[in-house]
Design a protein around this nucleic acid. Structure first.
Lengths: 187, 187, 187, 187
DNA sequence: AATGAATGAGGATTCATTCAT
DNA sequence: TATGAATGAATCCTCATTCAT
């Protein structure tokens, strides 16, 4: 009844990518096998290699999607800055909300880093993502500071997922404000 | 006390752990299977389960070794502070040397984080490591700052392994000095 | 007459056959799959079954081409016999040049034989080829000898491709001359 | 009932080799897959790679067995020469019986040649076999003739399996006797 | 205490072929 | 007529783990 025969399925590629991301988040990249992803996306195993000739192609596409989505959120939060608000508050918000509500994406990022430190293709993927993020930050902050802000954010978010202590927003705010002293703000 | 070690091949356990770490660094945690590790350590496959009943036990032991070694280095650098030197310079040094010379350990850490975000056992392992590191930092810096310093370091080292840009020690120093303003230094 | 050939890509069928032969020579008959041949001939996979409904049809066509080409060369060498030359020299020449310069065709023949000993269709293909070859030999040699000459040639060429020893033309000549004593020559 | 659990099975390796040869003879080397051989030998699929880490190792072992067995028969026939018998008769016998009764081995040889012309490992296997065969022939015939005798035999046997014509023992005898003129006989 | 042998499940791919467009 | 997409079966091989010795 659930479509033993399937003629065409235009969103199949997307479904596979979504399913892959879910599985990576749940069981790590090694858990996103052709088999498990095919089952989760309700796609015959034999058709997987048509869309992604190699398992690596599939993972790469999935992580590219992750990077695109994450950056979009990042950029949106930095873009909608109301008149008169201190942009550093947005950085604080990014760190805290990421630490709190985006567990899945955090897990996926950790997995991506583990691949990236060993494989150029994933490294390049992150580099592209990083550059876009820094571009977004440069709307409000000077270019020389932007890489450091990004690194601080990375470290804080990562540790927040490891640590048992609750998130202390004041501590985050203090760190961000120290790293970006007032006169650094562009606008 | 020495009861755990076999008489015929007393360093076997150690050899296995070293081989496991090498293989994880080269091919990721999934690449360190009983088989590959046994071959690399020149140990019969059938004897692996004697030393590590489960593959996970082996990985855990390997990462524990990593944490111990890393922390020892970390602590040593912070301990040997000559009279009159600014301890923040030691933090700068930690970041830069880690970024430059310890590629293997950085790769292993990334792998460990990827496991930790999904599995408590690895998370607890990192927590222990993190606590010891913070203890070392508290020799010189106030307790409220120490977690942030650690996070900044983490982010900077991680990004240095992804980025193509050369390490800019001045940028690092500026970040560290801003995060830890002079009056914060204990001694 | 030209009705079988497509207008848009008139040599496609030929290109496929050539690509198939190359792939068989390089990786054996099992290596000449629809996919590999399509890629090598730069033809869309989906169009393969139009030209050759079955993979076996494709292989058969390829080997037929091999037989035709090989026999043409064989026949040409035996046909152009200058007045007064001993035709046995031509047999020697056939063996030696085949052993030396026609590696690809030798490899293909071996593959064809492996198929032929189990499958009638390939066996019939070789029979046709063998009969034509014997016809060519009968220009110069009596019918009762012709099968034996052919067999000797086959064995010598085959062994020359296996053996590490260099080709000894004198040894070949002696064998041929003994097998075909002078009075056997027709002309 | 047929032994779901099997503790030890000392002849497993031999059984696998026998099954592999049968399957190669029936369906060609590509038909002797781990799966088909495991089923034919009544061995769990997962244990195949313990005995033969690579499918190629399995095939090589099977063909080595073929070569050993074939040469043993070859050598036996040439060894038991009664006083006063012309050894050339033994060569005739070898060719004829091989052509007639040893279909399976002939098929296997053809398959082996197809592998050998492309792969050194199989080529070396045949070289070893060829050298032993020539050693056997040198009991009765001069060294310079022995390679040619072997080649003639090879070609005649091969063609006999392709041709539709019945085996003509007189034709074979004539060929052998011409190739080995009486004074060549050693004893 | 130590290990060679075994095993069933699952790994990534490749395949010949079909079919809707 | 031509082909991109699809599919189920099969490919080789690896795996963690068990167990008899």
């Amino acid at each position: 009844m659930t479509g033993r025969v399937r003629r065409s399925d235009p969103h199949r590629r997307e479904r596979i990518i979504e399913a892959a991301l879910d599985l990576i988040a749940q069981h790590g990249a090694p858990g996103a096998t052709y088999r498990t992803v095919a089952a989760a996306a309700d796609v015959p195993l034999g058709s997987m290699t048509y869309h992604f000739p190699t398992r690596d192609d599939m993972l790469l596409a999935a992580f590219q999607r992750l990077a695109d989505d994450q950056w979009a959120r990042f950029d949106r939060i930095l873009a909608e800055l109301p008149e008169g608000e201190d942009p550093r508050e947005r950085v604080v918000q990014l760190i805290v909300t990421h630490g709190e509500g985006y567990g899945r994406d955090m897990i996926l990022s950790a997995e991506l880093y583990a691949l990236a430190v060993r494989d150029v293709r994933y490294r390049e993927l992150i580099q592209g993502w990083m550059n876009r993020s820094r571009g977004s930050l440069e709307r409000h902050f000077p270019a020389e500071l932007v890489a450091t802000i990004d690194a601080l954010q990375e470290g804080l978010v990562l540790h927040s997922h490891i640590s048992t202590e609750p998130f202390d927003i004041e501590r985050i705010r203090q760190a961000v404000y120290r790293l970006i002293p007032e006169p650094s703000i562009l606008r």
